[in-house]
Design a protein around this nucleic acid. Structure first.
Lengths: 187, 187
DNA sequence: GTCTATACGTTGATAGAC
DNA sequence: GTCTATCAACGTATAGAC
């Protein structure tokens, strides 16, 4: 792995553990096995590093969802696949997801252009639009539904990650959780 | 208002805006209209200030819920009152709630004793236990239900606060959101 | 590209007068 | 209790050699 990736990898872990400002660049450089100056060769400022970290993992999540979700099936099946694959990615990338959440609650988030956010949300938004058109889900503002689904996923993840479930129980819980979601939004 | 409260009030605002570490004690003191040394007279360290801020508002929320929720009515009615009053408190105390969320995601949270957390969650946990006993809600692990309800509330708040709704629409949305929650957990 | 050395501002916290 | 003055430590970022 080259030095740039190593810096990003270490930064993700340390920042998620301690927060943006409590994580000095010196510590990141040290644990990544590079000199302090090297970090600033790859990232002009510390803020640049944080923004790069965000877009990197956000892109990975979006690509994963796009790759695993097809829109050819029925609405409820598409929803199901979307839900499961999102949970799976988050579970495999817990630190990255924690970082994304931290980032969303920080002032940095205001620096992200609206178009970029829209792009990341587009899959779910279009799916909801389709569901509304077909009368499969409750007639409510699409942003409300979107917000409820996002927080539902976060709640499920919070539950899953604070326990140490067997793989079987993990899948069972994920399925039950999806049922809850579907009971909530279906007409 | 005495100086201690003024410090807490300003700290809440500044820390919520910029985060724990990005908010210097000097700035808090300045905006609170006190000298730097005065802040450290009331709070031994900066961490002490942050912990005091957390327990203060967390206590206020708990007292508010205890005060407005009665357990004498039917389960669904008690749930409804709990939900509405929680949303109302959060809406009236958005900054405090944002701070609490920030705090929960920070390493500080590990410093909070488990008993204190249990105490704050006790109302909802007991309510869920009662609902399970009566067969009113789905037979699922109580922690899963608890987690789903918490995140549901956060999702609703996120939606409500990013829009500028009239008081009427605000209440309508809150009611609809509760219906969604109830559809999700009821048997 | 990578390193060492260092400049420079900022911050949390203390001491001591009033 | 409140203030002023001050310090030691730390953190970001740069300069320049290799």
């Amino acid at each position: 792995m080259d030095k740039k990736d190593e810096i990003l990898k270490v930064a993700l872990r340390l920042i998620t553990e301690s927060g943006f400002h409590a994580t000095p660049t010196s510590k990141i450089a040290k644990e990544a096995g590079v000199a302090n100056g090297t970090l600033f060769h790859y990232f002009k400022t510390k803020d640049d590093l944080i923004l790069a970290l965000y877009t990197k993992h956000q892109n990975e999540l979006r690509l994963f969802i796009d790759k695993h979700s097809t829109k050819n099936n029925s609405i409820d099946s598409t929803f199901h696949v979307f839900y499961i694959s999102t949970i799976n990615w988050i579970h495999e990338n817990q630190t990255a997801f924690q970082f994304i959440q931290q980032f969303h609650q920080s002032p940095f988030y205001q620096l992200i252009p609206r178009e970029y956010i829209n792009q990341n949300e587009s899959f779910l938004i279009e799916l909801l639009q389709q569901g509304l058109n077909q009368g499969a889900i409750k007639q409510l503002p699409i942003e409300l539904l979107h917000s409820m689904i996002n927080s539902h996923i976060i709640g499920t993840i919070n539950y899953l990650t604070t326990r140490n479930l067997s793989l079987e129980d993990f899948h069972k819980t994920t399925q039950k959780s999806f049922s809850l979601l579907w009971d909530m939004i279906r007409k």
